[in-house]
Amino acid sequence: MAKYSIQVNGKKHEVDVLEDMPLLWVLRDIIGLKGTKFGCGKALCGACTVHLNDDAIRSCSYPISAVGDAKITTIEGLSEDGDHPLQQAWEKFVVPQCGYCQTGQIMNAAALLKRNAHPSAQEIEQAMQGNLCRCGTYNRIKAAISEVAGIPNAASK
């Protein structure tokens, strides 16, 4: 066990946890932020995606000991009222089905647009390939990201 001070969504949190506890479980079990989801525990599905500074990371495989003083952003901190342009586009295209993977999808897409505001269709697919959706909402995800990026709908092949 060790004590860590981490910054999540602009707020400092002191936690006393196992050194190898993945950030995901710190967020969910210790801090109580439930919007970040557990899907695989091995960085294979993307449901747990959060931002470490500006980068999308898989929080299920990112130990708390590696966080340091980086700024963590979760879905709860992405926007004030769930009104980030991507969240709005997600609503416009009614992207979710069960919804479980969607917070991870949105966080991953937000990091993509931060580093590349106008990605090509192929760049969207490449960036999003680590995020699984078992319901199969990929086409609407592409449509929503394309809309915010101002490019033609990436669902066309």
């Binding site: 932020l33 439930k34 919007g35 989801k37 709860e76 769930g82 609503e91 992207v95 919804g99 917070t103």
Partner: peptide, 21 residues
């Protein structure tokens, strides 16, 4: 008709089984 849980889902507020406390 858009789904009623849409905003809760995209803002991370939707409660799934894993989120029950």
């Amino acid at each position: 008709t858009p789904i009623v849980d849409l905003h809760d889902i995209v803002s991370g507020k939707a409660v799934f089984g894993i989120d029950a406390v």
